[in-house]
Amino acid sequence: MSVVRKFSGSRVLVWLVLVVGGVLSLFPFFWMVIGTTLNPNDVIRGIIVPGPELFLNWAKATKNYNLPLFFLNSLKIALPTVFFGVIVNGLAAFGFEKFRSKSREKIFGILLLTLIIPQIAVVIPMFKLFSFFGLLNTHAAIILPSIMSVFIIFFMRQNFKMFPTEIMEAARVDGTSEFGIFVRIVSPSMKATFASAAIYMFIAQWNAYLWPLMTILTDAKKTLPIAMSSMMYAYTIEYGALMIIVCISIMPVLLLFLTMQKQFVAGLLGSVK
């Protein structure tokens, strides 16, 4: 009898932890959606029943704050970063892993070593570089430095290890060029790796804040994070419109997560292996 009681007692505790944790995890999301329907005062007061101002807030977000432009800007920066990033990093990972040489291994070691250098230490000289070339306040300034990622090269290299070299040898015998092997044989069978890398790079760029904050100077170039952050510093804050922008900024990442959970998590956990 006492065994059963003790057993169910811990059962209750377990579910209590799960439910409380779950509510805490989800509540900000729930409240963010409610917030899109409230007037600014009610957002601040934290009313948790939907209000009538969704369409008004939407109108403000799209007209006063140019939400579509910010969204488009974020997309115009994130997609090229992913496109070029997957090619450049994928090719580099392939080169490092399948064509090993002493000097390239040394270079790879240096790459890994510089992985510990925090972004804040790199962005200041980089700012000078871009200002020298007159590239401040351009989207190129945000795209170019994000294409190469040591972390992504490392992640992809770990995955390329699993690709059997025998298949490459067989393709060589068949007369396929090395580049053809990469494009037509290795890449298609490593789709999941590429997907994980792409998702990771997309999210990193979509959410990027520090470097865009330094380089973006005008409203017309703002990305969603920069737009949100400058709204917070405005004299009067349109909280309802802000909540809509917050929702829209989270949406693509949320959709990626819910539709491609496996690759999403693999990308985030990439370095665990």
Binding site: I87, A92, S101, M148
Partner: peptide, 9 residues
């Protein structure tokens, strides 16, 4: 070819 792969990065 190895150098060609890592060069852009």
């Amino acid at each position: 070819f190895g150098w060609f792969c890592v060069a852009p990065a």
